[in-house]
Design a protein around this nucleic acid. Structure first.
Length: 288
DNA sequence: CACTTGACCTGTCCGC
DNA sequence: TGCGGACAGGTCAAGT
């Protein structure tokens, strides 16, 4: 669901759509965690101008001119959808997944001075939104422990492999999903990159060779960059800032393709549980 | 500290 | 047809 490429797609979409807009109103249901400080909302959110939209790992950061930041985690089913004034009160004609907003999964609505809206939808209510002083964002426990961004230009294969040494006795898939090892990897891109590197997800980290780590580093970056290019993966819920689907699933090699054939060797793809997650492999290419 | 499991939620799908 | 249960998966708390 929303992993690094999906959150990055939302970030870039919002960056183009909401910078410079002024927030004039906020409504919300009883969604836990927002607003975490009602007085801060009235003083630092209402009337604030959006000055930047950033991402760290799977967390979105909407910076305001008041030196406060909206910190947002979409978790599994969160959506952030912008609607310009021209769409107010009407379904978006290009949406394939959502219609008129707000709908029954809308948790927070931000209104801008020009009549546009930003909707935070979350069917399963795992996601959250908080308003924090910008200076305090990096003090959050998650930000303190989260690992490096895998797509940064100066992030090397050697640094990548070194991050795993702490998790020597767990499976490579569990370690990949651990946000303190590397930021932003979730179930989809864990499976896709392990297939690319021909590594079985249940292999213990300590058995993975340097050459395999190098391949995993290369393939993880490749699948994530391709996914960003394709606007992310839409399995069920994910949409970008305009409410539209991503198309990476059309290019997936193994994820959600059990029963279909491995695009590399033609063997039937299988699914099982690993690291507590549905896991997809080619049993010919990826040997335990 | 490393590691695993369950909890948090709701909508969907499958078998009876 | 209705209904119970499994499943979906990001992160954190609590367990070993």
């Amino acid at each position: 669901m929303p992993e690094l490429p999906e959150v990055e797609t939302v970030r870039s979409g919002l960056h183009a759509l909401i910078i410079g807009r002024i927030i004039t109103a906020e409504t919300h249901d009883t969604a836990k965690g927002f607003p975490n400080a009602p007085d801060a909302v009235s003083r630092f959110l209402i009337g604030a101008t959006v000055i930047d939209v950033r991402r760290r790992a799977k967390v979105l950061l909407i910076d305001l001119a008041t030196d406060y930041t909206l910190v947002i985690h979409l978790k599994m089913t969160g959506q952030l959808v912008f609607r310009g004034e021209e769409n107010f009160g009407a379904g978006h004609p290009n949406d394939s997944l959502i219609g008129e907003l707000p709908d029954r999964s809308t948790r927070v609505t931000l209104t801008f001075a020009d009549g546009a809206h930003l909707y935070f939808n979350d069917q399963r209510k795992f996601g959250w939104m908080r308003l924090l002083p910008t200076m305090m964002v990096m003090d959050l426990p998650f930000m303190q422990k989260v690992g490096p961004e895998p797509l940064e230009a100066d992030f090397t294969a050697e640094q990548f492999a070194d991050r795993f040494t702490r998790r020597a006795k767990t499976s490579i898939k569990a370690a990949l999903l651990d946000q303190s090892v590397v930021a932003g990897v979730g179930n989809i891109y864990a499976d896709e990159s392990l297939w690319g590197a021909k590594i079985h997800p249940k292999r213990l980290v300590k058995t993975v060779t340097p050459a395999e780590f190098e391949a995993l580093y290369t393939d993880l970056r490749a699948v994530m960059n391709l996914a960003i290019e394709k606007g992310g993966s839409t399995d069920k819920n994910y949409v970008n800032a305009e409410g539209k689907r991503g198309s990476y699933m059309d290019f997936a090699s193994v994820f959600r393709r059990e029963g279909l054939l491995c695009p590399r060797c033609g063997t039937e793809i299988i699914k099982f549980k690993a690291a507590g997650r549905g896991t997809h492999i080619c049993p010919q290419c990826q040997v335990e």
